[in-house]
Design a protein around this nucleic acid. Structure first.
Lengths: 209, 209
DNA sequence: GAGCGTAGTGTCAGTCGCTGACAATTGACA
DNA sequence: TGTCAATTGTCAGCGACTGACACTACGCTC
């Protein structure tokens, strides 16, 4: 299982991710070449592309991990909960575990800075949005399964996930632009934005909150 | 105003768009090179990049036009309407005008096929999502203006637009995969999906619609 | 422990998207 | 008609990415 070969591979992959993150954060995404990343880990460019199918993938690796983490948490949730409530509560529950999972690969502070790079680099943001869309589709299937609804005929799972994800993206963007990008802030921002979903859709907006 | 120079420029730009659409639709986006597009219009590759900053832009040109069209329609809407209702009604109103605007540039049938290409090509889908995000931000500002709310402190404009746009994207995707991609179907699909926004968010989903 | 098969890597050559620089052309306007 | 400025083509070059091939070294068998 843990042959020398396996461990070596894991190590160079992690090293590539960390090196790429550091370069992206300090120089910017576009200004960093794949050659620089490969050189920092002392492998050839060709090897880089054997680990990651493109430059975006190494930048979004951790993000994708977090997404998968959330998805698995939903899967593991007890059934019977109303779907929106399930999404909301699960999200609220896993922050600390997410941090732990991230730190097995990249220092958390580096990940936070990387989030800002993703939001500000056009190419990276585009790729991120597409990855999110793929994850949304998986969430749709899971929500449909849990509620015993057929997503091919009933639009509610897709509509719910689309609305939820849209709000989460807005919250993430808002959060990434604060001075204080701590876990605690992330938790409250997402909570607040989700709480606004109902009020925002109602016909009349009385002034003030 | 309409000098020979202007008209010539307009013509090559339109020719590039049409040629690109035809190539993308028949060969696929990735399989089409910029050289092919330029050659089809008998200009140099360099000239192509003077009209469009990258390959995605020519593919998304019409989509962006439609987005801008919707935005302008919102701007022109009478004030006082509840925000969600304004988005919904405006969308419902402009379908025919959109078709007319599109057909000034590209045959509508070609545009419809192009929509499917966008949904199925990863690179193009990613770029499309990013463009949509930019348009969402403009919508946020406009909704905030109309309701007299400050989007920097009140999250409701962003939340509303995010939810609305998310649902529209899902509807568009669903529509583009139908056999019948007519305007009439588009109108009903978007209407139905938007109508599901409320029910999808409520705590309990009774079986069946 | 020698030797064999194969997974992982480096090198090289080539394609494609995209850009800057410079020269040539051509419409606009006096 | 002649000058100015906008448009275009050509060329050279960078960076992302890929296929092909040869080489190294891990892992497993005998």
């Amino acid at each position: 299982m843990t042959g020398l070969r396996e461990r070596k591979k894991q190590r160079t992959r992690d090293a590539l991710i960390v090196a790429a993150h550091e370069l992206f954060v300090t120089q910017g995404y576009d200004a960093t070449t794949v050659d620089q990343i490969a050189e920092a880990v002392d492998v050839s460019q060709r090897t880089f592309f054997r680990y990651f199918s493109n430059k975006e993938e190494v930048a979004l690796f951790v993000q994708d991990m977090v997404g998968t983490f959330f998805y698995e948490a939903i899967r593991a949730s007890p059934p019977g909960e109303p779907p929106l409530e399930c999404l909301r509560r699960t999200l609220d529950d896993i922050w600390d575990d997410v941090q732990g999972a991230v730190e097995e690969i990249v220092p958390f502070a580096l990940h936070l800075k990387m989030c800002q790079v993703i939001e500000t680099s056009p190419a990276l943001l585009a790729a991120h949005l597409r990855h999110s869309l793929l994850m949304e589709e998986k969430l749709v299937q899971e929500i449909a399964r849990r509620t015993g609804v057929d997503p091919a005929t009933d639009p509610r799972p897709r509509v719910l996930v689309a609305a939820f994800s849209g709000v989460m993206r807005v919250a993430a963007r808002e959060w990434s632009m604060r001075e204080n990008t701590s876990l605690e802030v992330a938790r409250t921002v997402t909570r607040d934005y989700l709480a606004q979903l109902g009020p925002a859709l109602t016909a009349d907006w009385g002034r003030r909150n």
